[in-house]
């Protein structure tokens, strides 16, 4: 008996075929527009800032001078202090966040059992959802007096405060990503090592961590990127003073915070306005480089021998 679906000619097109094509174009369009948007943002930032880079400022001064005085009679646009501010705060944040988040991820992925693991994961995700302005508020009103009291310094807003806050902020996301990386190591690896008589810790140290090293590196890099780009919490906790820092109690100012604080008060197209966009290009390039590296690491470029 012949079935009701007629035998189709090789080039016959059914509803499913058209649907499939339509979906393909739709998804392609969505992807392309996302990319176009990012390229558009980059073009916009560059257009606003690049004329300034070519014509007005000299790059030696921009990268070499710590004097950021855009509103003085003889404006100076040295970004060194801002770069130092961002770098020192992010660096301290990573010193705090990396051990904490890797430790937490290892505990959750390798040692915690069923319900405890689920509870911890939910807790970590809750922490990751705290808005950055709340972290900034904690920096201002909790950490600031504590630092003044414990270390007997006049001001508690500075690298230490912002670094701790930023570290706490970045740790939950890094923990989540690192934990995913550890869970992605096949159980067969653990089992094979355990069958050899390796203890839980030896399995983690000798098999799971090497197996997850790409994902863990990516987690750290994304944390660094997060720290670089964070604005509000750093603005509130860092003291926002333009200077090359001498120690962890010094106030600093971050690139991001500078843009956020000053852009509203500049005339569109002015030198100051363009200088801020130049800072934006710098941030964009650095975070882009960090994310790209993270991405390449995840794809295991480092593994090819």
């Amino acid at each position: 008996m012949r079935s009701t679906t007629q035998t189709q000619a090789p080039d016959a097109r059914g509803v499913a075929w058209y649907l499939d094509k339509a979906m393909a174009y739709l998804v392609f369009g969505a992807g392309v527009s996302a990319i176009l948007l990012i390229v558009g943002i980059f073009v916009f930032i560059t257009k606003e800032g690049v004329g300034f880079v070519w014509d007005t400022v000299d790059l030696g001064q921009f990268f070499g001078s710590p004097a950021w005085r855009p509103t003085s009679d003889t404006p100076q646009y040295g970004a060194l202090a801002l770069i130092a501010g961002t770098a020192s705060v992010t660096g301290l944040a990573m010193l705090i966040a990396v051990p904490f988040s890797l430790g937490a991820a290892i505990y959750i992925a390798e040692f915690a059992g069923g319900t405890q693991r689920e509870a911890l994961k939910i807790l970590i995700e809750l922490l990751a959802a705290i808005p950055s302005v709340v972290w900034g508020f904690i920096g201002l009103s909790v950490l600031n007096p504590l630092i003044i009291e414990w270390f007997d310094v006049p001001v508690g807003l500075g690298i230490l405060n912002a670094g701790v806050i930023l570290g706490l902020m970045a740790a939950p996301i890094m923990t989540t990503i690192a934990e995913d990386a550890l869970r992605a190591v096949p159980d067969g690896y653990r089992e094979a090592a355990e069958a050899m008589g390796a203890t839980r810790w030896q399995v983690t140290w000798r098999v799971v961590l090497p197996g997850a090293k790409n994902g863990l590196t990516a987690a750290i890099l994304l944390g660094v990127g997060r720290g670089f780009g964070e604005t509000m919490a750093v603005l509130m906790a860092s003291g926002h003073a333009v200077q090359l820092p001498d120690g962890v109690f010094d106030s600093v100012r971050a690139l991001t915070a500078t843009i956020a604080a000053e852009l509203g008060e500049t005339a569109v197209g002015s030198d100051h306005y363009q200088a801020l966009f130049t800072l934006g290009i710098l941030l964009f390039v650095v975070t882009f480089a960090i994310n790209l590296t993270a991405d390449l690491v995840v794809r295991g470029i480092s593994n090819k021998d």
């Binding site: 190591v185 096949p186 690896y189 089992e191 094979a192 098999v207």
Partner: peptide, 26 residues
């Protein structure tokens, strides 16, 4: 106990380590 017993699994599991480290692990 497990260190005195060698096991070969049906699905081969090369650990994500170098060939040398795989064999040097035990």
């Amino acid at each position: 106990l497990r260190r005195r017993i060698g096991v070969v699994f049906p699905l081969p599991v090369g650990l994500p380590l170098s060939v040398f480290d795989n064999v040097a692990m035990a």
